[in-house]
Simulated scan of single mutants.
Amino acid sequence: MAARRRRMRKRTRRQLQGWGAGAAALVALWVAGNWAKVWPVLLIVLAVAGAGAAGWVLWRAHRTAVGEDRQWREQEAVRARELSMAEVDALSWQAFEHYVADLCRRDGCTKVVVSGKSGDLGADVVGHLADGRKLVVQCKKYAPHRSVSSQDMQKFVGTARPEHGADVALFVTTARSFTKAAQGLAERQDIVALHRNLLGSWAGGAHLDTLIPLSGRGDGTKRRRSPA
């Protein structure tokens, strides 16, 4: 029985091979007789397929180049900010206060004065924004891994407006963050709190006016003065 099945499979395979060879011969004869009609269509199909493949390759190459360029620009921006912050970290606390004052002047602040001494009651830098609002800045030169405590923020809250009449009270630090309590206090008391990342953006060219709204409600809208 098994031998019979093997013989039947061999006979079926030979029949299929014969039918295939016959079909191939018929197709060859038809193509040979109609080649003059077939080859222009075949060339058009091949040309369209080639153009499509080339277009797809170019599109993929463009997408890859755009993605790589975007990634490179992002990396360069991060690297530039890191280099800038590395330079800031190397400053003394006195030089840091003058650096912040220079950033204020760069962004249009006037009458900018650096206290440069102890006992300034939180007013390390004082000046006026371009629209005349009085700006009082507390500068804290802390290690990058530190956080600003609520005690530091409380001291600034207690002097920025009662003692110095600040319209905009700015607390800027090289520390990585403010504690949750310090940040909450800053938001409730309209203090602009700029931690390390926002300072890096400021140093990298971001305008102070664009950074003020990023920290709570410390934009000085409750109190305005005419330009001095």
Rank of each mutant, 00 (worst) to 15 (best):
M1A: 13
A3Q: 11
R5Y: 05
R9S: 10
R9D: 02
T12N: 08
R14D: 05
R14A: 11
Q15K: 14
L16A: 13
Q17C: 04
G18V: 04
G20V: 01
A23K: 13
A24W: 10
W30N: 04
V31P: 00
G33K: 02
N34G: 00
A36W: 05
W39Q: 07
L43M: 10
V45I: 07
V45Q: 03
L46F: 03
V48N: 00
A49G: 09
A49F: 02
G52Q: 04
A53V: 09
A53C: 06
A53F: 09
A54K: 08
G55I: 08
W56N: 11
W56F: 14
L58V: 13
L58M: 13
W59R: 15
R60W: 12
A61L: 10
H62W: 09
R63D: 10
V66I: 08
D69R: 15
R70Y: 06
Q71K: 15
W72C: 11
A77I: 12
A77S: 15
A77N: 12
R79L: 14
R79M: 11
S84A: 15
S84T: 15
S84V: 09
S84P: 00
V88M: 10
D89E: 10
A90N: 05
A90V: 03
A90T: 03
S92C: 01
A95Q: 14
A95Y: 01
F96P: 00
C104F: 14
D107K: 08
G108N: 06
C109M: 15
T110S: 13
T110Q: 12
K111V: 00
K117N: 04
K117R: 14
S118K: 08
S118V: 07
G119V: 03
G122S: 06
D124P: 06
V126T: 13
G132I: 05
R133D: 05
Q138Y: 00
S149N: 05
S150R: 13
Q151E: 06
D152T: 02
M153E: 00
Q154R: 15
G158E: 07
H164V: 04
A166P: 09
D167A: 08
V172W: 08
T174E: 06
S177Y: 06
F178D: 01
F178R: 05
F178S: 05
F178G: 07
F178L: 11
G184A: 05
A186T: 02
E187G: 13
R188Q: 14
Q189M: 11
Q189C: 15
D190Y: 10
L194Y: 06
L199R: 11
G200V: 06
G200L: 03
W202T: 00
A203T: 04
A203C: 11
A203Q: 03
A203R: 03
G204Y: 03
G204S: 14
G205D: 00
G205K: 01
H207A: 12
D209E: 09
T210K: 08
L211Y: 07
P213Q: 01
S215I: 07
G220S: 07
T221F: 06
K222F: 03
R225Q: 12
P227E: 01
A228C: 09
